[in-house]
């Protein structure tokens, strides 16, 4: 097992490098230019644009930019006192020494001018608040519904949940969100119309004090999960119920429920486990639409606005963080698969 994990981790290195090169190339091939977007203003003269482009380093050849981003550029900058500020302004106009992402320096956002990684890390608490709540709700509601629907297959509960679980998931999320805001916020006035519910000044209060702000976005986000998990769980559980070992157990006189829940449900969870790794990493990416509708200050909004502004340092930091989590997520899910399914050997 350990050997397998090690092998996967070593394999991940070229994957990671491939991702960085590929995304860097795609990014630069994409139309749109950060400097024209930042200076789309007739009062800003051509000379100023040149100056800005030099300062951001976007005029350098692509391979140079990639290397600077990957391994830094302090080897070509004179900085004897090592204070991170070049002793002489480098020819490319960059105002600080870069250390490269391999040493944790993701560069500064073109537009927001702060450390790109820091900007991403800043958004993680809000993103997790929303997405972890949604995941917990979809699992705790979706899985039992799936199991029970399989157990009472064909009964009223099965029929009801078969339609009911997906009803809420059959309209687009943005539409659902706006309707919920309109109904519970504007018309009934019982729930807040968005945002995290932090006070207008100072530190945000603990989550349990502003649960009301979580209700509507969680509903929107978890409906998909509930529908998905309950359907897959039902299908998976049915296969177990109909399998020979369950029949044998029942034939031997064990009570139905005990067999189903103790053995059937456990085995039925195996296929679901494969989802979990990618789901966990998907959570970090945030939920762009829900965050937009509910004015939630999460990662999704940051990444989309960075994309539309061609704020490459943020986009690339997002790609790198995302890919590391994705790689880890897949390894975890494969390992989980082996743990829950003893038939699989590596």
């Amino acid at each position: 097992m350990i050997k397998y994990i090690l092998r996967r981790l070593i394999q991940a290195v070229p994957t990671f490098l491939g991702i960085t090169i590929l995304s860097y190339m795609i990014m630069w091939a994409a139309p749109g230019d950060p400097v024209s977007l930042m200076t789309f203003d007739p009062t800003i003269k051509q000379e100023t644009k040149e100056r800005l482009a030099n300062a951001l380093g976007v005029n350098d050849p692509l391979p140079i930019q990639y290397l600077r981003w990957l391994i830094g550029d302090e080897w070509k900058v004179i900085d004897e006192d090592a204070d991170g500020v070049p002793d002489e302004r480098p020819a490319d106009g960059l105002t600080r020494v870069r250390y490269g992402i391999l040493r944790g320096d993701f560069g500064d956002s073109f537009y927001l001018r702060q450390d790109a990684l820091e900007l991403i890390v800043q958004r993680i608490p809000a993103t997790l608040e929303l997405s972890v709540t949604a995941l917990i709700v979809s699992l705790t509601v979706g899985l039992p519904i799936g199991i029970l629907a399989a157990v009472w297959r064909g009964g009223w509960f099965d029929q009801f949940t078969r339609v009911g679980a997906v009803v809420g998931n059959a309209v687009p999320g943005f539409w659902m969100g706006i309707m919920l805001i309109l109904f519970f916020g504007a018309i009934l006035g019982v729930l807040p119309m968005g945002d995290r519910g932090c006070p207008t000044r100072g530190e945000c209060t603990p989550l349990y004090m502003r649960l009301d702000h979580l209700i509507l976005p969680t509903v929107v986000l978890s409906l998909g999960g509930i529908a998905g998990y309950s359907r897959y769980m039902r299908a998976s559980m049915l296969e177990q119920i109909n399998s020979d070992y369950i029949r044998t157990a029942r034939a031997k006189g064990l009570p139905n429920r005990l067999v189903w829940f103790k053995h059937g449900a456990k085995n039925a969870l195996i296929p679901i486990a494969t989802f979990l790794g990618p789901t966990l990493t998907g959570l970090i990416g945030g939920a762009v639409i829900t965050e937009t509708i509910f004015s939630w200050p999460g990662m999704g909004r940051l990444l989309v606005s960075a994309l539309t502004r061609r704020d490459y340092p943020i986009v690339m930091a997002g790609v790198v963080v995302g890919s590391i989590l994705t790689i880890l997520g897949y390894i975890i899910s494969d390992v989980l698969y082996a743990v829950v399914d003893p038939r699989i050997r590596f």
Binding site: I178, M193, T200, R201, T292, I293, S295, P297
Partner: peptide, 22 residues
């Protein structure tokens, strides 16, 4: 006493928040 500049990215929601007095 205070001036607050809220970030409300969706304009439909923004108008509804205004109409609701928020």
């Amino acid at each position: 006493s205070e001036w607050v500049y809220k970030s409300v990215p969706d304009t439909t929601v923004s108008v509804e928040q205004f109409l609701a007095g928020e």
